[in-house]
Design a protein around this nucleic acid. Structure first.
Lengths: 122, 122
DNA sequence: ATACGAGTTGAAGTGCGCTCCAACTCAAGC
DNA sequence: GCTTGAGTTGGAGCGCACTTCAACTCGTAT
C-alpha cells in the first residue's frame, strides 16, 4: 500500500502519517524501488487503534511510549497492559464527566425551552 | 471576592482568569478602590459551567460565542439553546467512542493477561 | 518607614499536534 | 521526450489554550 492509500483508508493525512512515523508512532515501512513507502495491511489496524486512543484523550507522548513498548515485543506485555488499564480509568472518569454534563445540558435546554415558550405569548 | 479567591474556589489559575476575561469568556468584574478585581459570587457558577463545557470538548471560540450571547440577554435564548443542543450531540458521540474503546481496552487487557499467564509457566 | 505579598498591565513565550512549504526525484501516460 | 501527479526530505509555520515575564502599584503587618 502506498502512503496515499493508507491516508484514504484511515482518514489521516499523508503529512500526518509521515509525522507519526517521525515521532515513532508508526514503524518505518519498507520502501519500493523508487524509495516510496510500501505499507503492509497490518498498519491499518494499528492506526485504527492509535486513532481510538487519540480520540479518547491519550496524549501523544503516551501513545509514543506505548508504540515503543509494542515494538520491543512480548517482554513489555505487562507494561502495556498497565498503560491500557490506566487509560481505561481516565476514560471512565471522562464518561462520568460527560454523563454529568449531559444531564446539565438537558436541564438547561428544557429550561430555555420553557422560557422561550413564556416569551412567545407575552 | 478577589482574584486569588476565585482561583482557589474554581481551580483555575489567576492568569487563566485574567486571560478568560480578556477573551470575553468572563465579564469584567468591578474594581475596588485600589483597582483590583472584585468578583461577585455568581461568577463561580458561570466558571463551573464553562469548565464543564471545556472538559467535554467545547472549543474556546464556541465558549466565547456562548458567553457573548449570554451577555446579550433573553433575545439570544434560542441561539444559546441551539448551541447547547449541538454540543449535546457532540457529547453523545464522544460517549459512543468512549464506550467502544472501553470494550476494546477490556478485551486487550484480558488478552494481555492471558498471554502473561502463558509466559509465566513456560 | 519598610518590607512583603497580592494585585495590575501588555507583550512575549510555551507545548502540543499537526500542517505546509520548497526543492527535489520518479513513473506512467500521451 | 514531456507533462503530470505522486512521492521524498528537512525545516518552518500555525492554531489553540494558556503561561510567563517585566515592570509596576497597593495594602497590611512589623
Amino acid at each position: 500500500m502506498r502512503i496515499s492509500e493508507v491516508a484514504a483508508a484511515t482518514g489521516l493525512s499523508v503529512d500526518t502519517l509521515r509525522f507519526y512515523e517521525k515521532i515513532g508512532l508508526i514503524d518505518s515501512p519498507p520502501r519500493d524501488d523508487a524509495g516510496r513507502r510500501d505499507y503492509g495491511e497490518e498498519v491499518l489496524g494499528w492506526i485504527r487503534f492509535i486513532t481510538q486512543l487519540n480520540a479518547t484523550g491519550m496524549k501523544q507522548a503516551d501513545r509514543v511510549r506505548y508504540a515503543r513498548l509494542r515494538a520491543q515485543g512480548d517482554s513489555t506485555l505487562a507494561a502495556r497492559r498497565e498503560m491500557l488499564e490506566a487509560h481505561r480509568d481516565v476514560m471512565r472518569a471522562q464518561m462520568v464527566t460527560l454523563q454529568d454534563t449531559l444531564i446539565l445540558m438537558d436541564q438547561k435546554v428544557n429550561f430555555y425551552r420553557e422560557l422561550e415558550g413564556k416569551m412567545d405569548h407575552v
